[in-house]
């Protein structure tokens, strides 16, 4: 009995030593193996609960549908105006000999699983290295920024959401162009930090990526300011940001190659 306990203790100590000295990506390799095995049942279970959620929310969806139809009409009118402006822009660019900026390729991916714990906010998506999705690939949804790829295997990737406590995004207040850093808090909100006390920022202001990093391109909507407070030490302001993306109902994402 004592030998068994000794061996069990030894295994724990050896494992702790192993994870201390080896890079995390080697320790985490088996995770994708398990996920690959469980991919199909996970996808089916996800679809099952998603449909149940639809049934529960069907009343709200009728109202949403009406609202969306009205919005589509407004947006269609705006789109025709923008097309005019785009053509004008193209003509003016040609006159000035500007090179056309190449648009990035977007890869669609479905969500297979969500984080099982509360201490981190990650999702597993159905695309990986085969589709040229590697670490630090930026992931977006129609509404705005989702996060970045944290680790990837051949056919799956784990995405760190912007609400994860380890997430940091260089951001800018869209209206006043004030720069800050968006931190995840593992709740459904983020915090925009390092804003000078005299910053011109209001509740409702849009926060977008600043482009001052090697990872996130400029101008992707992160969210809107819902509250402004002083940081605990009182040296700067802190804005609480509600992400533009509703992570609870997120089903598909787009990866920027």
């Amino acid at each position: 009995m004592k030998i068994k306990k000794f061996i069990a203790g030894l295994v724990v100590i050896l494992y702790a030593a192993l994870i201390y000295f080896s890079p995390p990506r080697y320790i985490d390799k088996p995770k994708f193996l398990f996920l690959r095995i469980a991919k199909l049942p996970l996808t089916l279970t996800h679809a099952f609960f998603r449909n149940i959620n639809y049934l529960v929310l069907s009343k709200d969806m009728i109202q949403d549908n009406k609202y969306l139809h009205d919005t589509v009409d407004v947006l269609t009118r705006q789109l025709s105006q923008y097309k005019e402006i785009e053509q004008e822009n193209a003509r003016l660019r040609a006159l000035l000999n500007f090179k056309k900026a190449s648009l990035p390729r977007l890869i669609a991916a479905g969500i297979i699983a969500r984080d099982s714990s509360n201490f981190s906010d990650t999702i597993v998506i159905s695309q990986g290295c085969k589709s040229k999705i590697n670490s630090d690939t930026v992931v977006v949804a129609e509404a705005g920024l989702v996060g970045r790829v944290y680790e990837s295997s051949s056919s799956m990737s784990r995405v760190m959401l912007i609400t994860d406590p380890n997430s940091r995004v260089s951001a800018i207040v869209s209206r006043s162009r004030q720069i800050g850093v968006v931190y995840g808090t593992s709740s459904n909100l983020c915090e925009l930090r390092y804003l000078p006390l005299a910053t011109d920022i209001l509740v409702g202001d849009e926060i977008v990526t600043s482009g001052f990093s090697d990872i996130y391109p400029k101008g992707i909507l992160i969210g809107r300011v819902v509250k402004i407070v002083r940081e605990p030490r009182g040296l700067s302001l802190l804005a609480v940001v509600a992400p533009a993306v509703n992570f609870t109902s997120l089903e598909e994402v787009l990866c920027i190659e």
Partner: peptide, 17 residues
């Protein structure tokens, strides 16, 4: 523990232990 570890970003084995 394995299920929890696989579906979270924490180091593999932490929930299991």
């Amino acid at each position: 523990g394995i299920i929890k570890d696989v579906a979270s970003s924490s180091v593999f084995g932490s929930y299991m232990l």
